[in-house]
Nucleic acid binder design. Structure first.
Lengths: 311, 311
DNA sequence: TGATTTATTGTCCGATCCTGCGAGGTCTTC
DNA sequence: GAAGACCTCGCAGGATCGGACAATAAATCA
């Protein structure tokens, strides 16, 4: 196990010398590297599995915090705004990890095809969980990373390996959680759809009645499930999407605060500013200035910082 | 609509001159033809969609009878032993139909991928239902049959057309039923798995408790759902599998009644004979003799008759 | 430096949202 | 067949949001 981790770590390190995120030639597979711990910063998780070869990372989602490291993967079933922090990394042993996007459709198909034990409790849970990394799982990821050396094999072999990974996750200790969100028709799955919709339409003002209807639940039930999955109310979730996007617009497109606020759906800059401060700790201009300075110190371009945050 | 049906009818007729079942080059697609009405005879349905271009057919499942014709398709979600009868066919306007196997995994994937409305009521229902044929659905089947003329296109085009068909079924009036059985983790889906297992292992003596455990329900709940889906108790279901297989063994492999009965799991030929009569109306030898005669009259080989029954 | 523009903070208000609770229904179990 | 678990729904009070307006602070430019 330990030696397998070392091999994976060096494989990852070989591909990502500096910079902290690399989209690889295997669709959906990203590599991560950090040479030192970071401050807590807001980040977005997508439906994916994250594995760490070296170091440790902390994710805060509402009241829960998840820590994952070389022996614990993090599995995420919907897009979730979180606060993330690398807590174990240094120049000799940098944080090295990878993430692989999950396709819920494929997972669902696999659940039906293989006679997996039924998930008795249908109740919603957090859209994120940590589980124990097993050696076979690690080996599968190793093979996936190895594919990068021989890219012509990717289209053929990657799907097979990914299916193996999904299977191992489904039968693993967090399989029930995954099954829940991938089960067509389950509440979690319906909420997942609403979240996808929100991600595309966050600039429109939103009526939660409509969202509830989309998910086929009453408003009150909808609220319950949404919160239990995301730790946020629907409106708070949308707000985070808006503010994050506004931050991106200001940072990379150099928009001023007012137009950014309009762009993401706010009609009053004052309200925008107020809520921005509450989320990011500082009002728009000051926050952006801080970020710019950070990137300047690290001699990194702003886009890269953003990439790290929208991982 | 009427003209579309005529076109489909002649397309089917072109491919199947005589004989009553034809497995086509499109995997899972079968064509059917009958030049005259039949007596009721026992038949097995598999997860599939059946469409009729001309004529009508009756299926009896427990207390329910389903009739389907040019304007009504029959959708089946699990393997079901039934009694079937062609009720509308003659030499001028023979019964012409087709069936397409359904892959529950694909259906499940599609349900997750497309934002389909949630199936509110989770209660189990019969594993079979009729629905109204729409023109787009008919057109899709027409295109599928047309593929038979250009077989090199099959691997590329057939899956697309089948996906369209599945989609139209999902949003059609019987979509909820389909969603239910395809929903990973739903009770119907669990029962479906058990049925698959039974089909492979019907020769072993069976313990209801084990089956129930397989489906993750208590024995009583399992019983309940099984019955509502199949109109049979698990034991009756298994019995039908055994007796049908015994009949096949005697008819095509020319086994004698005793060895056939042992082969399918019976330990006492007398018990076998008694239950055989009850299901098929006549004791083994007499029944087989009758079937042989029928096939002789129709100058068909026995295997073909059987094929009709295990449609 | 002063003028002008832009950003931030404050307060207020109406509308909407959010959460906890109890009733009612369904499914499960014994 | 009855008790029990689970889920959903609707409700009501309290919390929050988003916008309006105004005032102050900061930044930009002449």
């Amino acid at each position: 196990m330990e030696s397998a981790l070392e091999v994976l770590a060096s494989s990852i390190a070989r591909w990502i010398e500096n910079g902290d995120r690399l989209e690889t030639a295997v669709p959906g597979l990203s590599l991560f590297r950090r040479d030192e711990p970071t401050q807590p910063m807001s980040g977005m998780y997508e439906p994916s599995i994250c594995v760490v070869a070296q170091g440790a990372k902390r994710v805060i989602l509402g009241d829960d915090t998840f820590v994952y490291d070389a022996h614990h993967y993090l599995i995420t079933s919907v897009h979730l705004p979180t606060v993330v922090q690398i807590i174990d990394a240094n120049r000799e042993k940098p944080f090295l990890g990878l993430s692989l996007k999950l396709d819920m459709g494929e997972i669902s198909k696999m659940m039906v095809d293989s006679n997996l034990p039924a998930p008795r409790p249908q109740q919603s849970n957090r859209g994120m969980a940590t589980g124990e990394v097993t050696l076979p799982l690690l080996n599968a990821f190793q093979r996936l990373v190895d594919l990068l050396a021989d890219q012509k094999d990717v289209p053929i072999l990657a799907p097979t390996i990914e299916r193996e990974i999904v299977y191992r996750l489904l039968v693993g200790d967090q399989g029930a959680r995954l099954r829940q969100i991938a089960s067509a028709g389950s509440q979690s799955q319906q909420i997942g759809h609403v979240i996808e919709w929100l991600k595309r339409n966050f600039t429109h003002p939103l009526r939660i009645g409509d969202l509830a209807a989309k998910s086929g639940m009453s408003p009150s039930t909808f609220h319950h499930h949404f919160r239990s999955l995301t730790a946020l109310s629907p409106l708070q979730y949308q707000k985070q999407l808006r503010l994050r996007e506004a931050r991106r617009l200001m940072l990379t497109d150099h928009l001023d605060a007012a137009t950014a606020s309009f762009r993401v759906g706010y009609e009053s800059p004052s309200q925008f500013s107020r809520e921005y401060s509450r989320l990011f700790g500082a009002p728009p201009l000051r926050d952006i200035a801080g970020l710019r300075q950070m990137t300047a110190v690290q001699t990194m371009n702003p886009a890269r910082v953003l990439a790290a945050e929208t991982a």
